[in-house]
Simulated scan of single mutants.
Amino acid sequence: MPDWLPPTLIAAAFVLAALLLLLALRGRGADQMARLGAMMEGLAAAQDRLARQNEERLRDQERSLAARLDQAAARAQDSAGAIQQRLAVIDAARANMEALGSQVGALAAVLGNKQARGALGEVQLRDLVADRLPASGYAWQHTLSNGTRCDCLIHLPFPPGPIAVDSKFPLEAWTALQEAAEPAARTLATRRFVQDIRRHVADISQKYLIAGETAEAALLFLPSEAVHATLHASHGDLVAEAARRGVHIVGPSTLWAVLNTMRGLLRDARLQDEARRIRHEVEALGEETERLERRIAALRGHFSSVQQDLREIELTAEKIVRRGAAIRALDIPDPPAARAAE
């Protein structure tokens, strides 16, 4: 029902009441008064029905509104829970970002210090070598006969011989090369980068290549795939020059492959050494077997001689037994003196 209908009915009731009064004043008939009274009663009944319907509809609307409010509260509570979970995730991510930022800052501080950066390269080198080679196949901070000390010496048999590995990290020159925006600055950074690598190659070639003591080649380990990739991609002539001087430049992935090859060489050398030891033991076992055969032959000769002596002893014993039996078989009378004594 429209909201404007009950006031209209009330207004109509007042109009009818006014008409009734006017008719009464004018002295009209009783039948008209009765009809007007019936109309007023009908309007009052209709108004009561409309009031009850309005109350029922208001209660329905209140119940519907309450249900909607409950649903909205439940949705709001769920949304608040989801928002709280997302806030918890955001807080955890923020904490991780802060921890990562502190770690990045610590890493930047480490990389900014040359000694700490060198230690980081040595640690990475240690992890790679210790992961792929047995403990007896390498030595750390090994001092060579010329007094120099390399980061790692891998004990390969001749040929090729022990291989020295030295870790270098030319971070400043590479960083300047990556950050250079102008051609002039990039040229200067490239020249500095090439000079640093060439100086490291010269040091390794002069210090760690000793005839008769080490192999004819050594390894320059760059503990950064980015630096290694930049060097091989843009400065292949420098890599070839280093190889001609007996220095092979490797990164983490290439060093891992090289160490796998060295692991196979060490395994083959160990198998050959064990084969030589087995051969030596077999030869010694053959000598002992020959010595045992000689002694068995000598013992067999002694045993044959003993058997011959036993046969001769048995023959002599048989002869003695036969002679004793023959003596017992002789009937020799007693002498006269023996009979007189009886």
Rank of each mutant, 00 (worst) to 15 (best):
A185M: 01
A12P: 00
S145K: 00
N113I: 00
G121A: 15
A211Y: 07
D196P: 04
A218Q: 06
A106N: 04
E342I: 03
T148Y: 14
E172G: 09
Q84N: 12
L120K: 03
W4L: 04
A184W: 11
D3Q: 03
E172N: 10
V201N: 12
A24E: 12
E287W: 09
T261F: 06
L58C: 05
A202H: 13
A284V: 08
G101S: 08
F303I: 01
P162T: 09
A92T: 07
L133P: 00
H235D: 01
Q71V: 02
A297F: 03
A243M: 05
G81K: 10
R244T: 00
L271C: 04
S145H: 01
W4K: 01
S64K: 10
A217F: 11
R300K: 08
L330E: 06
E172F: 07
G212I: 02
I10G: 11
R291P: 01
P252G: 11
A340F: 13
L219C: 07
A130S: 14
R311F: 13
M1Y: 11
A130M: 11
M40H: 14
F221K: 01
Q272S: 08
L120D: 03
A325Y: 02
S145N: 03
A80N: 13
A242P: 03
S205Y: 05
V194F: 09
E179L: 08
L265A: 13
I313M: 12
L133I: 02
D131C: 06
L69K: 06
K168S: 05
P336G: 06
E41G: 12
R323V: 08
D237Q: 13
A275G: 08
P7S: 05
A44F: 14
V250L: 15
Q141F: 07
L330T: 01
D196A: 14
S79T: 07
L315K: 14
E290L: 14
Q307H: 02
L23C: 07
M97A: 15
H280E: 14
A12Q: 09
R75A: 15
D309E: 08
Q206Y: 13
L22M: 08
Q47K: 04
I90T: 08
R245D: 12
V306L: 14
D131A: 15
I278Q: 14
E290S: 13
G29I: 07
W4Y: 11
L310F: 09
L315I: 11
L5H: 04
R291A: 15
V194N: 14
S253K: 07
L209D: 07
Q77C: 03
A73D: 09
A329H: 06
N96W: 13
V15M: 10
G324N: 12
G286R: 14
D3S: 06
H235A: 01
G112D: 04
V194G: 11
E288S: 10
V239D: 01
R68V: 04
E288C: 05
Q84Y: 12
